[in-house]
Simulated assay, not measured.
Amino acid sequence: MITVERDFLLPVPLDSLVAYLEDFGRAEEWDPGTVSCVRVDEGPVREGSLWRNTSRFRGRLTELDYRLEAREPARLVFVGTNKTVTATDEMRFEARSATTTSMTYEASLRFKGLARLAAPFLRPEFERLADEVSERLPKALSKSSGWT
């Protein structure tokens, strides 16, 4: 299993940040690997909401079906699966002030079958992608709502 974690201090109120990130379709804006992320069910975003995520990794396209597993006032958990991997994206939030939120983003990948053998060699690439999230998320928030 590979786990990467990044901490952010963002000039966005906690409730607004959670509302932005709970729509996983916005991953196109802040996740450097995401090519498209389309909601496949209807209604308001809630626990159980579903998305089809297409990502580019090492030059290849891959699809994962993501589900919002947990939606709490200060925590979101998305789990994506396909035949070779289960990806878990957990976001934890803490209000630092009325207008600033601390966020911890943790992405874990559990490979299945023969793909498990490649996991140790893929860590540097996932660390690089996590660094890119650190750069892109604040910019995406700024474009989306003008908070920053």
Rank of each mutant, 00 (worst) to 15 (best):
M1P: 00
M1E: 02
I2Y: 00
R6I: 11
R6N: 07
F8H: 14
L9T: 15
L9D: 10
L9M: 12
L10I: 12
P11Q: 14
P11C: 07
V12A: 09
V12I: 15
D15S: 14
D15H: 12
S16N: 06
L17H: 05
L17E: 03
L17N: 03
V18L: 07
A19H: 07
Y20K: 12
L21Y: 03
L21N: 03
D23Q: 10
F24P: 00
G25C: 07
G25V: 06
G25Q: 04
R26D: 02
E28S: 09
E29R: 15
D31Q: 08
D31T: 04
P32I: 09
G33I: 06
G33T: 12
G33F: 04
G33Q: 13
V35W: 01
S36L: 07
V38P: 00
V38F: 03
R39L: 11
R39F: 06
D41S: 07
E42G: 09
E42A: 15
G43H: 06
P44F: 03
R46C: 06
R46Q: 12
E47H: 01
G48D: 08
S49T: 11
S49L: 08
L50W: 03
S55K: 13
S55V: 15
S55Q: 12
R56T: 14
R56W: 03
R56I: 07
F57D: 02
R58D: 06
G59M: 12
G59T: 14
R60N: 05
R60D: 02
R60L: 10
L61F: 11
L61N: 12
L64S: 04
L64W: 01
D65K: 15
D65W: 06
Y66Q: 04
R67Y: 00
A70T: 10
P73Y: 10
A74C: 09
R75W: 03
L76T: 04
L76P: 00
V77K: 04
V77L: 11
F78Q: 05
G80P: 02
T84Q: 09
V85A: 12
T86R: 15
E90K: 10
M91I: 13
M91E: 08
R92A: 13
E94H: 13
E94M: 15
A95M: 10
A95F: 08
S97R: 11
T99N: 11
T99E: 14
T99Y: 07
T101P: 00
T101V: 13
S102K: 14
M103E: 08
M103D: 02
Y105F: 15
E106A: 11
S108P: 00
S108R: 12
L109G: 00
G113S: 08
R116W: 03
L117Y: 09
L117D: 01
P120V: 11
P120H: 06
F121E: 04
L122G: 01
L122A: 09
L122N: 02
R123P: 00
P124M: 10
P124I: 08
E125K: 13
E127R: 14
E127M: 10
E127D: 10
A130R: 07
A130V: 06
E132L: 15
V133T: 06
V133N: 01
E135C: 05
R136T: 02
K139I: 11
A140L: 10
A140W: 05
L141R: 08
L141W: 08
S142H: 07
K143H: 10
S144F: 14
G146F: 10
W147H: 13
